[in-house]
Design a protein around this nucleic acid. Structure first.
Lengths: 173, 173
DNA sequence: TAGATTTGTGAGTGATCACTTACATGATAA
DNA sequence: TTATCATGTAAGTGATCACTCACAAATCTA
C-alpha cells in the first residue's frame, strides 16, 4: 500500500466519521503516518483530497445500481432496489456515510443522482399496473433514503426482517 | 429585540445554513451586529450558544407532535403524522434543518426522540387491524424521515399532491 | 553511471479559531 | 448620591488552521 493510498484511506475514514470541516489535514497526516506536506504534494489542497476520495467511491457505487437499470423484469427491479440499502457490505459503509454527511455539510447535492433509479422504478410500477407509478417510485425512493439514514446513523435495523416485510408489502414473494 | 436575541437568531441562521463547525463566533457576532465577546458573556462558549438555540427550538417542535400522541382516533393519528412534515411552516425550516444537520455533524443523535410517535403509530395500525403494525409504523416513520430530508435539502416537493397520494395509500380519505 | 523526475519531509507562513481580560456604560436600588 | 450589578466592547491571547518552501532521498531513464 503506497503512502498516497494511505492518505486516501485515512481521509475517507476521518471525513466520514468526523466531517470534512472538522477534520484537519494534520490529523489525516498523523492517521496515515505521513508528513502533512505530502497531502498537498499529491492532492494540491484539502478539497482536492476530498474530490479524489469522492470520485473513488462514486464509481464503486455506480456498480451497485447499474445492474438494476439494465434489469428487464419489473418485479426484479423493485426487488433489487429494496435490497440495495440492505445488502451494501459494511466495508462500503464508510464511503456511504461520507456521501450522506457531505449532502448536509456541503451544498454539493445532486438530487439527480438517484433520478435514473427513480425512473426505472416508475417504469417497473407502471409495468405491474400500479395506479400511480411515478408517485410510488418517489415514495419507495424516499423511504429507502430514510432507511439508509437510520442504518448509517447507527440505529439497529433487523435487515433480514425488514427485507421480508418489504417483499411482502410489495408482493414480491 | 435584545442583543441576546439577535445572537440567537444569527446563530440559528448560520448554524443551520453553514453548519456548526464551519461557523465562527466572529461571523455570528458580525451577523448579529454585536461584539464577539458578548456571545461569551451570555452563553459562555460556542457550544453553550448551540445548546441554547437547540433548546429553544425543541420545545417549539414538541408542540407540533404532542397533539398526535393524545389523539384517540387511529385514523386521525396516521393522518396527522403524515401531515407533519408537509405542514411545518417555512418559518420553522431553519430550526428543522439545524436538527438534521446536527444529527450528521455531531454525534448528538437521539433515535429515541421519535420513539413515542412510532409507538403511537404502531398502536394506530394495530387498532385498524393491519397485519404488521410495528413494522408498518417503522416503515412510515422512515419514509417521513426521507421525505423531510428531501424537502430540507431543497428538492421540489408538491406537498399537496404528496399528501393526497399518502392519504389514498393509507386509505384515509 | 549520470541526469532527470518523482516522492518525501521539517520547518516554517500568515490567517483564523474560540476565548479572555480590562475596562466602560447604563440601569437599579439604598 | 453612591454603590451595585448587568450589559457591552476593544484589544488582545495561545492554539490551530490550510498551505508553502527549501531541500533530501529514492526511483526511473538514457
Amino acid at each position: 500500500m503506497t503512502k498516497k493510498e494511505k492518505i486516501l484511506e485515512a481521509g475517507l475514514k476521518l471525513f466520514a466519521t468526523e466531517g470534512y470541516t472538522a477534520t484537519s489535514t494534520n490529523k489525516i497526516a498523523n492517521a496515515a503516518g505521513v508528513s502533512e506536506a505530502l497531502i498537498f504534494r499529491h492532492f494540491l489542497s484539502k478539497e482536492g483530497l476530498l474530490s479524489a476520495i469522492v470520485k473513488e467511491g462514486e464509481s464503486a457505487f455506480k456498480n451497485l445500481y447499474t445492474p438494476i437499470l439494465k434489469e428487464s423484469d419489473p418485479k426484479e427491479v423493485i426487488r433489487l432496489t429494496i435490497a440495495l440499502p440492505l445488502t451494501v457490505p459494511e466495508s462500503h459503509y464508510e464511503f456511504w456515510r461520507l456521501q450522506f454527511r457531505l449532502k448536509w455539510e456541503l451544498q454539493s447535492v445532486n438530487h439527480k443522482k438517484s433520478q435514473p433509479l427513480i425512473d426505472k422504478l416508475s417504469w417497473a410500477f407502471a409495468e405491474l399496473g400500479v395506479a400511480h407509478p411515478k408517485q410510488e417510485a418517489e415514495f419507495l425512493s424516499d423511504y429507502l433514503e430514510g432507511l439508509a439514514s437510520q442504518i448509517l446513523l447507527g440505529k439497529e435495523v433487523n435487515k433480514k426482517k425488514t427485507e421480508e416485510f418489504l417483499l411482502l408489502k410489495y408482493k414480491l414473494t
